[in-house]
């Protein structure tokens, strides 16, 4: 997905995990994924560099689809679709 496409996604829920380092963003994602429906999009905000690699791996394991990420000023917006 291109950055433009990612920015135009309809997000069902957004979690701000910028206040936690590894493995905080994963824990936040796990908590949030339970609150959305299958096929809906979850947005995770993280300032932790490792999340860029960790979240796709987490999605892979969970069967969720990692859609991509957008780099903002000092943090990342990561998008995933619940299976």
């Amino acid at each position: 997905m291109t950055t433009e496409e990612l920015k135009n996604l309809t997000v069902a829920k957004s979690v701000d995990a910028r206040g936690t380092a590894c493995p905080g963003p994963l824990l936040e994602a796990k908590k949030a994924i339970g609150t959305i429906q299958s096929g809906e999009i979850l947005e995770v905000l993280s300032a932790d560099e490792g999340t860029k690699n960790d979240l796709p791996k987490w999605c892979n394991k969970q069967g969720n689809e990692f859609l991509g990420m957008v780099e903002e000023n000092g943090y990342y917006k990561l998008y995933l679709k619940k299976k």
Binding site: C22, P23, L26, L27, W58, K61, Q62
Partner: peptide, 11 residues
């Protein structure tokens, strides 16, 4: 603990 939490987050 960190590794355990990451693992648990991955079910």
């Amino acid at each position: 603990m960190i590794i355990s939490l990451a693992a648990a987050a991955m079910d």
